[in-house]
C-alpha cells in the first residue's frame, strides 16, 4: 500500500523549468502572457501548500464546524474566480453574488449527496473525503458556471435586436430570452460532456492517477473516478442552470424589458 515515491522540493524545482520555458516563449513570441503564467504558477504553489497545511490541520481536529468553514472558504474563492472571468459583469451585488450563490447551490448539493448516499464515510463530514470531493466539484463546476454566465451576457448583447424584436411583438421575457438561455447552457455543459467522452481514452484524471500512484488497485480507483465524474456533471448542471436562469431574470424585468443597463461595460 505505502510504496509511493516521496517527492523532494528539488524534484518540483526541476519540473518548474517548463513553466519558465513557457514564460520565455511568451517573451520571444510577444504573447504578453509571461506575467500571468508566472503569477498563476506561483499562486498554485502557494495555494496548494496552504491547502496541504489546512488539510493536515482539518484531519487532526475532525470538527464538522471547521470542515464547513474550509468548504465555505473554497466556495467563496470559486465565486470570486467566476466573477473575475467575466468580460461584462452584472452591476452591484449580482456581479459576485450570481456565480457564488449558483456555485454554492450546485456544489454543496452534490457534495452532500456524494458523502451521504455514495461514499458514506464515518462521520459523513470526514474532511479527508469532504474537502477533496468538494474541491474537484468546484474546480469543474466553476468553469461551467463561468462559461454559462459569459454565454448569457454576451448572447444578450449580441442578440439584443432579436430579443427586443420579440418583446415588441408581445413575447414574454421567457420566450424572448429562450434562445440566449439555451445557447448559454449548452456552452456551460459542453466541457463536462467533452471531458466525460475522453476520460479513460485520452485523459486519465488526476484523482484516479493519484490513487493508483498511492497503491489503490486500478479497478477501485476507476470506481471512484466514475462517481466523481457523475457528481461533477450534477454540480455543474445544477450550478449552471441556477446561474443562467437567475442571470436571465436579472437581465429582464417585471415589465418584460431587456435590461442591458444592469451590465457593466466590457473590460478593455
Amino acid at each position: 500500500m505505502n510504496s509511493y515515491i516521496t517527492l523532494t522540493p528539488w524534484d518540483l524545482a526541476l519540473a518548474s523549468i517548463f513553466v519558465l520555458v513557457n514564460a520565455g516563449l511568451s517573451l520571444a513570441l510577444e504573447l504578453h502572457i509571461h506575467r500571468q503564467m508566472l503569477i498563476a504558477a506561483l499562486r498554485m504553489v502557494v495555494q496548494l501548500s496552504l491547502m496541504g497545511l489546512v488539510l493536515t490541520a482539518l484531519f487532526s481536529v475532525m470538527s464538522p464546524l471547521w470542515t464547513m468553514v474550509a468548504a465555505l472558504g473554497m466556495v467563496l474563492f470559486a465565486g470570486r474566480e467566476i466573477a473575475a472571468r467575466q468580460e461584462r459583469s452584472f452591476t452591484g451585488l449580482w456581479s459576485y453574488g450570481l456565480g457564488t450563490v449558483s456555485m454554492m447551490t450546485g456544489s454543496l448539493l452534490v457534495t452532500i449527496f456524494g458523502l451521504t448516499a455514495a461514499l458514506r464515510p464515518d462521520p459523513w463530514y470526514d474532511p479527508k473525503y469532504a474537502i477533496p470531493l468538494l474541491g474537484m466539484i468546484l474546480g469543474n463546476g466553476m468553469t461551467g458556471i463561468a462559461l454559462g454566465i459569459q454565454g448569457l451576457t454576451a448572447g444578450a448583447m449580441q442578440r439584443r435586436g432579436a430579443v427586443e424584436a420579440q418583446l415588441m411583438l408581445g413575447a414574454t421575457r421567457r420566450e424572448a430570452m429562450g434562445p440566449v438561455i439555451r445557447q448559454a447552457l449548452r456552452s456551460a455543459l459542453m466541457p463536462i460532456i467533452n471531458s466525460m467522452s475522453v476520460t479513460g481514452i485520452v485523459a486519465l484524471p488526476g484523482m484516479m492517477t493519484g490513487q493508483i500512484l498511492g497503491g489503490v488497485s486500478p479497478v477501485e480507483a476507476v470506481r471512484y473516478q466514475i462517481l466523481i465524474m457523475f457528481l461533477i456533471a450534477g454540480g455543474t448542471g445544477i450550478g449552471a442552470v441556477t446561474a443562467v436562469m437567475a442571470g436571465a431574470y436579472r437581465l429582464t424585468d417585471q415589465r418584460h424589458r431587456l435590461r442591458l443597463d444592469r451590465l457593466r461595460p466590457a473590460k478593455s
Binding site: V163, L167, H256
Partner: peptide, 20 residues
C-alpha cells in the same frame, strides 16, 4: 396591463428591425 399585452396593442416598429 401586462407588458406583452400592452405591446401587442401599442406596437413599436423600429427603424432597424430585429430577426431571431
Amino acid at each position: 396591463i401586462p407588458a406583452p399585452s400592452w405591446r401587442r396593442q401599442v406596437s413599436y416598429v423600429p427603424a432597424v428591425s430585429g430577426w431571431w
